[in-house]
Computed example of a mutant assay.
Amino acid sequence: MSKSKNIYKIIDNKGRIYIPKELRTAAEMEPGDIVKLGLQKGTVTAKKVNLIEIGDQSPEAMEAYVRAALKEMSEETQINIAARILELVESRKGVQL
């Protein structure tokens, strides 16, 4: 991607913005990656990271950690975790498997 090419986007009513494929490719961002948002001198920054900051226990950070960890797990472990999550969700609904 050319550094001189500007791309303009409109933020939707939920505060979301679409990052174009050419920018995601250049930043090596893929679905499920963790992106750290920041603010530097009035400029919003977005940086792909592999780990969340220690101590951040926000729901978003926890989800990002789980997604990153899943990428490193065997398929068998992923299936076991998915089954356990399903059990937890179903038990909260009062439904038995």
Rank of each mutant, 00 (worst) to 15 (best):
K14Y: 09
A69R: 02
K41D: 11
G42N: 07
T45I: 05
L37W: 02
E22P: 00
L88W: 06
L86T: 07
P20R: 01
L97Y: 06
K5R: 12
S91N: 14
I17L: 10
E72G: 12
V66K: 11
L86S: 09
K5N: 11
E90F: 03
Q40T: 14
D12F: 03
I19P: 01
E63N: 15
N13S: 12
E87F: 14
K41A: 11
M29V: 14
G15H: 02
N6E: 15
V95D: 14
N6M: 13
Y65T: 15
I10A: 15
I19S: 06
L37N: 04
E90N: 10
I17N: 08
S58D: 09
Q40N: 11
I81P: 01
D12L: 06
A27D: 09
E53L: 02
S74Q: 04
Q96T: 13
D12I: 04
E75R: 00
L86G: 07
V44S: 09
E63F: 14
L51K: 09
G32Q: 05
K93H: 10
M73E: 14
N13A: 11
D56G: 04
P59G: 13
K21T: 08
K93Q: 14
I54A: 11
L37S: 07
I19K: 03
V49F: 01
D56M: 03
L86W: 01
R84I: 01
Q78L: 05
A27F: 02
L51A: 10
S91A: 15
T77V: 03
